[in-house]
């Protein structure tokens, strides 16, 4: 069983939902990446989505755009990010790591080289934001062969025909983007998410995570009630941006607030 499947299965037995933080690797600086990953696990992360910086993050709002720019100022490359996953794996063999980014750095490295390097480093899954299923078959084949999960996004406007396509190609879990727009935008309508998720579940047995617009413990708890996983990105990156010197401590403390809210404690 893959690390991602094992994680969801363990959580299910415990009656808990997955907490998936996202941050951009190399933000605020390259040395922070691995300590931040460990801090997030200490704060209650079940899976880490590790952002690969790109010069043109078309689907991201200003918070994640800035984080990408900070990382790129340090010259962070996809190879660096894969290297940090290997470093993280030396002391954490349980927490799945999903690389999340845009197509061009992956195409530039080449699918085969990328898949082999990511697998060897100990990565578990890949989200390529600008590869919809129509363009992703060759990537999925390559990642399948390497034993890596290809995670796809779903949106409020995904049609049933495409849901079927995504359900057939998706591995590990599906990522439901709960808002129209870019990352870090507006607020989330929990009832609407609940309706959409039950519809999505009629097409797939994969766990479904929800992201975009989750900014506090209370919302995270209500989303956790109706989904399998809660993804928090922009709000976490804001913590890192606000106090780069204390990024790991701030990230850990912020995430543990979300974790306790999700597990039924007081809302952060």
């Amino acid at each position: 069983m893959s690390r991602i499947a094992a994680t969801f299965s363990r959580l299910k037995q415990q009656g808990r939902k997955a907490l998936i933080p996202f941050f951009t690797a190399g933000d605020p600086d390259p040395a922070s990446c691995v300590p931040l990953m460990h801090a997030l696990v200490a704060g209650g992360a079940d899976i880490i989505e590790l952002g690969v910086p790109f010069s043109d993050p078309m689907a991201d709002g200003p918070v994640i755009q800035r984080s990408s720019e900070r990382a790129l100022k340090h010259g962070v490359s996809l190879r660096d990010v894969i290297g940090w996953v290997a470093e993280f794996r030396k002391t954490d063999s349980d927490t799945p790591v999903v690389l999340m980014g845009y197509a061009n750095p992956v195409e530039s490295m080449g699918f085969d080289v990328f898949a082999a390097a990511a697998k060897t480093a100990g990565a578990d899954g890949v989200v390529v934001v600008d590869y919809p299923p129509e363009e992703a078959e060759r990537l999925v084949d390559t990642l399948d062969a390497a034993g890596l999960d290809t995670v796809f996004l779903l949106s409020p406007t995904t049609t049933d025909a495409r849901l079927k396509q995504v359900a057939a190609l998706g591995r590990g879990y599906l990522y439901y983007v709960s808002l129209k727009g870019v990352t870090g935008a507006a607020t989330i309508d929990v009832d609407d998410v609940a309706r959409r998720l039950s519809h999505i579940r009629s097409f797939t047995a994969l766990p479904v995570g929800v992201g975009f617009g989750i900014r506090d413990g209370d919302t995270a708890r209500r989303i956790a009630d109706v989904s399998d996983a809660v993804v928090i990105g922009s709000r976490l990156v804001q913590e890192i941006e606000a106090a780069p010197a204390e990024a790991a401590a701030r990230a850990r403390s912020f995430l543990s607030g979300i974790r306790s809210a999700m597990d039924g404690g007081t809302a952060a």
Partner: peptide, 12 residues
């Protein structure tokens, strides 16, 4: 060519 965009843009 093709369509290399996030899922959120597909329906538009």
């Amino acid at each position: 060519g093709g369509v290399f965009v996030s899922e959120t843009l597909i329906s538009a």
